[in-house]
């Protein structure tokens, strides 16, 4: 249990996908103009990460990685399908996003209306693929740890985009020098946020 909390806190604050690895920057910069839309996108990222990373964890551990197929019999123990990782992960993400979109549309139109536009956007968000690849690289012991990591990464991404959206709303009336207006100042704020998030660097539960 303690390990799960530890992984969660680490992936929210220390290994933050945006502020530590600069992943998912495109949608992070494009959609962070108002708090309302960024909350929608942030929730969608939490949601999709929370679903795709555990699924990819299962696929990776029982189909793709070296020796993963040994449950089929000793003949398959030597097979290494890890060269398929990227394409399978992307396919999983894209199809999951489609599936989720259809399910939400059917059962909760209000949620669909608030998330609707963002779900297809997320299929190509590198934070999502990044989450799956980090999961593979970090060798989590079981699916619960992978889930905790994916949830934490999603929450970290959410915090970052909502935080910067509020700041961007606030500095709308600031007298930023002309060359820096727009994306320039947003990158600098992202850097300052990264410094602030380093507060939790090397935290240990």
């Amino acid at each position: 249990m303690e390990e799960l909390v530890n992984i969660f806190v680490r992936s929210v604050f220390i290994d933050n996908l945006v502020l530590a690895y600069y992943l998912g920057m495109c949608s992070y910069l494009a959609v962070s103009k108002t708090v309302k839309t960024s909350v929608g996108l942030g929730l969608a990222v939490i949601f999709v990460l929370g679903i795709t990373v555990p699924i990819n964890y299962l696929i990776d551990n029982f189909l793709l990685s070296k020796g993963a197929l040994s449950w089929l019999g000793p003949r398959f123990a030597e097979i290494n399908l890890s060269f398929l990782t990227f394409i399978v992960f992307i396919a999983v993400i894209a199809s999951m996003v489609q599936l989720v979109e259809m399910v939400i549309e059917k059962f909760s139109p209000t949620l669909y209306n608030s998330l609707g536009i963002f779900l297809p956007l997320i299929a190509v968000n590198c934070a999502i693929l990044g989450g799956s690849l980090f999961m593979q690289e970090r060798n989590f012991a079981n699916i619960a740890e992978a889930f905790s990591f994916s949830l934490g990464s999603g929450v970290g991404w959410f915090l970052a985009i909502v935080g910067i959206a509020a700041i961007r709303e606030k500095i709308r009336y600031s007298n930023v020098p002309a060359p820096l207006r727009g994306l320039g100042i947003t990158f600098i704020i992202t850097g300052l946020m990264g410094i602030a998030f380093m507060a939790f660097m090397s935290i240990e539960l």
Binding site: V35, V162, G163, A165, A166, I167, E169, K170, L192, M193, I195, A196, F197, M198, A199
Partner: peptide, 18 residues
Amino acid sequence: GVMIAILFMNVFAPLIDH
């Protein structure tokens, strides 16, 4: 931790206000 905690909350103050 005070200084860095305040820096962290500086970043989130606009969100609280919002």
